[in-house]
């Protein structure tokens, strides 16, 4: 008798658990598909122009920010080693002009890397002071 009751209870518990698991899996799938369709990538800063200035050596950047966001910038050499790193900071939306000092770099090919959350932009520039 006790065994019968235990098995009956166990069967009900298993049925409930199975149903809950199926519902949870369906919800996860639904959530994933909804996110895929309705939450696209957050727009990243557009690097609209990059120009090198000399005496002193510096980079002039024009940026278009679709919304306020945290951005960081690094300069890398052609072996992909980081030479300069400017601290990340939150910048306002809109058009912006940045001037980044590049003292101590010799002539050559370098890369500017602009990073936000989950996205980065790399752009080559050449220093040619002579």
């Amino acid at each position: 008798m006790t065994m019968d009751i235990d098995l009956g209870v166990l069967r009900i518990v298993l049925l409930i658990t199975l149903s809950a698991t199926v519902l949870w899996l369906l919800y996860r799938r639904f959530r994933y598909n909804t996110l895929m369709k309705h939450v696209p990538v957050v727009r990243h800063a557009e690097l609209t122009s990059i120009q090198v200035g000399y005496h002193p050596t510096r980079l002039h950047l024009s940026l278009k920010l679709p919304h306020a966001q945290e951005l960081g910038a690094q300069v890398l050499n052609d072996r992909w080693e980081q030479l300069h790193d400017w601290p990340r900071a939150i910048h306002k939306a809109g058009l912006q002009q940045w001037e980044l000092p590049l003292e101590g770099l010799h002539d050559g090919i370098y890369y500017l890397r602009l990073t936000s959350v989950g996205q980065s932009t790399e752009r080559q520039f050449i220093l040619r002071s002579a």
Partner: peptide, 14 residues
């Protein structure tokens, strides 16, 4: 970029 969900990692290279 609209093809991808918000959590992906994107690298742009000019």
């Amino acid at each position: 970029t609209a093809l991808f969900p918000a959590e992906v990692e994107i690298l742009r290279k000019y």
